[in-house]
């Protein structure tokens, strides 16, 4: 069962990474293209609406507008990847696979966040004592803890959203109903 889930995750992860890389390459190509083109326009100006404007700036705006949808896609890809990675990592921690109320899940996320802080207190100074490796090990440990912190914060936000989303929707529907009634009365 677990192996199946892991295989599913790896397949999905593979597709997402490929998509992210594809969009990233497209984005890099656009940047390189902009760099090459901008050399031709460097120092050149144009008179537009009685204002002297640099052609390089116009090119930057054009490329910016062209690459905006791509940036959006990149952000969306990263979000999906983080969601996938976080659920993959989080389910390795005890009590995080159980079907519990989102509020309990929020408390569990906070528990793990506190544990990360408590682990960082002795762990970071412990490695820094060793002159040669210490510096690098401290960095690796700090980054690892930070990555885990991001994962738990993401899960926490997701659960808070899950908990409040339904209620907010209900409240909005209720509010709309009241407004509707008031309008009909008028």
């Amino acid at each position: 069962m677990g192996d199946n889930n892991d295989k599913e995750f790896l397949d999905e992860f593979d597709i997402d990474v490929k998509r992210l890389i594809k969009h990233l390459v497209q984005f890099i190509v656009i940047i390189i293209l902009f760099n090459i083109l901008s050399t031709f326009f460097r120092g050149k100006t144009i008179l537009l609406f009685e204002e002297i404007i640099s052609l390089e700036i116009i090119l930057l705006i054009l490329f910016g507008l062209l690459s905006l949808p791509l940036v959006g896609r990149l952000v969306a890809d990263t979000r999906i990847l983080i969601a996938l990675l976080s659920s993959f990592i989080i389910k390795r921690f005890p009590g995080m696979t159980q079907e519990v109320h989102p509020l309990i899940r929020i408390f569990r996320d906070i528990v793990y966040i506190i544990i990360l802080f408590l682990v960082s207190v002795p762990a970071i100074p412990l490695f820094s004592q060793y002159m040669v490796f210490g510096y690098h090990v401290t960095h690796i440990v700090s980054l690892l803890l930070l990555a885990l912190l991001v994962v738990f914060l993401y899960d926490l936000s997701k659960n808070i959203f899950q908990l409040t989303h339904g209620h907010l929707k209900e409240a909005a529907a209720h509010f709309l109903k009241i407004m509707d009634k008031l309008n009909k009365k008028k």
Binding site: I104, R108, L118
Partner: peptide, 19 residues
Amino acid sequence: IIALLIFTLTYLLFISELV
């Protein structure tokens, strides 16, 4: 801060029924 974190952790463990 450490004592407060430990205290919060303990009480959250009670509420979340993680252990």
